[in-house]
Amino acid sequence: MIAFQNVSKAYANNSIAIEDIDFKVTPGEFVSIVGKSGAGKSTLLRILIGEEKPSKGRVFFGAAEVNKLAPKELPRIRRQIGMIFQDFKLLDTKSAYENVAFALEVDGHAQDDIKDLATQVLDIVGLRDKRHNFPHELSGGEKQRVAIARAMVHRPAVLIADEPTGSLDRINADEIVKLLVKINELGTTVLLATHNDQVVNSLSRRVITMIDGRIVRDEAKGKYVLA
């Protein structure tokens, strides 16, 4: 489903973000990508969604070679990949429902569909009662759940979570991880980039460890070890 083939990314100032990255992800997997800040986790994810072009190598999402796609073809790929971030990236002027509905609006869904789908997905993440609340009226955990609802409303094949628990307390972080596991169990492939060792160790799933832009370990049931 996802394949990185000898991918490297260097910037104009010769700093290397990732180097010789080579791995595959099969449908339904839950993969944690771990490493310190600056290890190249986010760069890797940005390359996967076509936000950045690799300097070398090839990146595949399904049959599409992402780095060869024209800009107008990228939105189609992005609709198949849901994304959540540490800073939630919600629109402050829109309610929880409107934030989720917005993702469907820009995809051209009919108004009735939007109403059904947005309500349904907010129900799944447990925010039906708070659907009319604005982001400033929600806790960190709730904001992240809105972000998950927005990412999942397209029913994507893959969910990418870039440090989703980074700004959450332990209890909220656990809830988000449980939600990600639940999403994975329903068939969605999950790619989790994190430097939260407790989260990774509690999962007991595949772990890819990155240090200084390189993959140093790729274990089926790995632990968070940065040595």
Binding site: E51, P71, K72, P75, R76, I77, R78, R79, Q80, M83, K89, L90, L91, F102, A103, V106, D107, R150, A151, H154
Partner: peptide, 16 residues
């Protein structure tokens, strides 16, 4: 900027 970033994130077409 934020809105545009989110539009891209959720796969809005360039026209949108």
């Amino acid at each position: 900027k934020d809105e545009i970033g989110i539009m891209r994130l959720v796969g809005a077409s360039n026209m949108f």
